[in-house]
């Protein structure tokens, strides 16, 4: 662990209690509880269909839960959705920038949606373009960007308004190793320089271990284990186990029966559009 895990004195930023979601027969999220603390990087790790995206969508207010509660910054997502949305940034698993607009325009319209004043807007957009190495490509149509540039623009767009919490759903899927490293660095910087709280999902073990303070391993809609990488190894009784072993141990041999086509379709599509 390269960082201090969840400082005990850090404020609780997210509180999830008994959260549930059903899609017909599928119990996509089956009653989960966890808290995330200020400045943490919290990762939801799990196989396809474990319920990671569903959990994130409910936390952003995009999807209604079937039970339980979520609080962000002390506000209930269900009761104060607009207020919560001004506290968060969200980068969905799918594409979320407009290919027919330039990078600058994509940032501009979101700055307006986030309610940034005209005076602060220009400055902030310039800052983001520079920070994410997009200044030179700012006036090009996003259609012509590489996968890595698109991901950076998406993240930049989601942090225009200095959110308290940034949600990233599989931020590095479909990226080449260099672009992936780039995205990691940006996430690290947001956390260390601005003390932003990060919640992300991933399939990559090394990403979870190197980037994040605590790991929640999800399986079939439940949290099978939660803690620092070290703590998970200890809990397993093998302090020198690899993350792959830890994952296999807690997630179990997971054969997905339902929604297989859907997940594969989604992740392939995500990979393709970034490819």
């Amino acid at each position: 662990m390269q960082d201090d895990p969840a400082k005990p004195d850090a404020a609780e930023v997210i509180r999830v209690q008994h959260l549930e979601k059903r899609f017909g027969e599928v119990h996509a999220v089956a009653g989960i509880d966890f808290s995330v603390y200020a400045g943490e990087c919290f990762v939801l790790l799990g196989p396809n269909g474990a319920g990671k995206s569903t959990t994130i969508k409910m936390m952003t207010g995009l999807m209604k839960s079937d039970g339980g509660s979520i609080e962000i910054g002390g506000w209930s997502v269900a009761q104060s959705p607009v207020r919560v949305r001004s506290l968060i940034g969200y980068v969905p698993q799918m594409l979320s920038v407009d290919g027919n607009l330039t990078g600058y325009e994509n940032l501009l319209v979101f700055a307006k949606l986030y309610g940034l004043r005209r005076s602060e807007r220009t400055e902030r957009i310039r800052e983001i373009l520079e920070r994410f190495d997009l200044a030179e490509a700012a006036d090009r149509l996003v259609r012509t960007y590489s996968g890595g540039m698109i991901r950076k623009l998406e993240i930049g767009q989601a942090v225009l308004h200095h959110p308290r919490v940034l949600f990233l759903d599989e931020p590095t899927v479909g990226l080449d190793p260099v672009a992936r490293k780039g995205v990691w660095e940006h996430i690290e910087r947001l956390r260390h320089e601005q003390n932003m709280t990060i919640v992300l999902t991933t399939h990559y073990m090394e990403e979870a271990e190197s980037l994040c303070t605590r790991i929640a391993i999800m399986s079939r809609g439940r949290i099978a284990a939660l803690g620092t990488a070290q703590a998970l190894r200890a809990q397993m009784g093998q302090p020198d186990a690899s993350m792959d072993d830890v994952f296999a141990h807690f997630a179990g041999r997971f054969e997905q029966e339902e929604g297989g086509m859907r997940s594969v379709f989604r992740s392939r599509r995500t990979a393709r559009r970034l490819g």
Partner: peptide, 10 residues
């Protein structure tokens, strides 16, 4: 929670 800290300016 104790997290009702200041909100984003906007």
């Amino acid at each position: 929670s104790g997290a009702a800290a200041p909100l984003a300016a906007s």
